[in-house]
């Protein structure tokens, strides 16, 4: 089931994934920062197992969109549902829901006063009530999987940016989320560290994780994305399969944007 979306891509078929089994649904979502209209009537459906890459110029609202999905940014109008349930108000229920949505930030945001291992086990122990040894065992497996298992006892500041971001991914995965949100996960990294993080994300996509990725990495969008969502000025301007989007963008805004980034 989780592979369905990717198989369709391989077969070259165009699809919207909108018919069945939507995991995240944004319906007529609006948000303002004061007078600034940052999300304009956004409709988006993300299917189970789908990898959606959100691109667009800076200030287009793509980060806000990503953060709205786990309600780090509350919205002003419209609804967001996760697995059929609308996002609850701030409180215990929302906390429980957030546990099902993994989030990876641009600036890693590892807990500075905790070791790498503790960063990964904090959620499972505190939120899911796991026993420490169980949580640690799985944390070590996850750290091995993202390639930083030997750093488990260190503190975040002792790791490189790429290593820290991989730990952040492991920390999110430790909660066994239904969907992972990536908010410009490589933008704060030195160039030589970008690929080590993207590799982990590609691997995650291959394993069938549902992902929403805000990024400027077009290579990642092409290799791992099922769909590209192009945003500008707070609205979704264009949605398409990556190949189609990059080779034949429909809107002027997308053409303009692609023209600019391809020059560099």
């Amino acid at each position: 089931m989780a592979r369905v979306g990717r198989l369709w891509i391989v077969s070259g078929a165009m699809t919207t994934h909108r018919t069945t089994d939507d995991l995240v649904v944004l319906d007529h979502v609006d948000k303002w920062f004061g007078d600034l209209h940052v999300l304009k009537d956004v409709d988006l459906r993300i299917g189970r197992g789908e990898v959606v890459v959100v691109i667009g110029p800076s200030g287009s609202g793509k980060s806000t969109l990503c953060r709205a999905i786990n309600r780090l940014e509350p919205i002003d109008k419209g609804t967001i549902t996760l697995d059929g349930k609308p996002l609850p108000e701030e409180g215990k229920e929302l906390a429980a829901l957030r546990a099902e949505v993994g989030m990876v930030f641009q600036s890693f945001n590892l807990f500075a006063h905790k070791t790498i291992l503790e960063n990964v086990t904090l959620g499972p122990i505190k939120v899911r009530g796991e026993k420490k040894d169980v949580a640690e065992k799985r944390a070590r497996e996850l750290l091995d999987r993202v390639g930083v298992g030997h750093q488990a006892e260190k503190y975040p500041a002792q790791l490189s940016g790429g290593q820290q971001q991989r730990v952040a991914i492991a920390r999110a995965l430790a909660m066994e989320p239904k969907v992972m949100l990536f908010d410009e996960p490589t933008s704060a990294l030195d160039p030589e560290m970008i690929s080590e993080v993207l590799d982990v994300m590609v691997d995650l996509a291959k394993r069938g994780m549902t992902m929403v990725v805000v990024t400027h990495e077009m290579g990642f969008a092409r290799t791992a994305g099922d769909r590209v969502v192009f945003m500008a000025d707070g609205a979704i301007v264009e949605e398409a399969a990556p190949e189609q989007f990059f080779t034949n963008p429909q809107s002027d805004r997308a053409k303009d944007f692609l023209g600019k980034i391809l020059q560099h």
């Binding site: 780090l72 906390a95 829901l97 949505v101 989030m103 500075a112 939120v127 952040a168 999110a172 430790a174």
Partner: peptide, 11 residues
């Protein structure tokens, strides 16, 4: 970001 990361894992 520390608080956001904590909230994001469901604390």
């Amino acid at each position: 970001g520390q608080a956001e990361a904590a909230r994001a894992i469901g604390l």
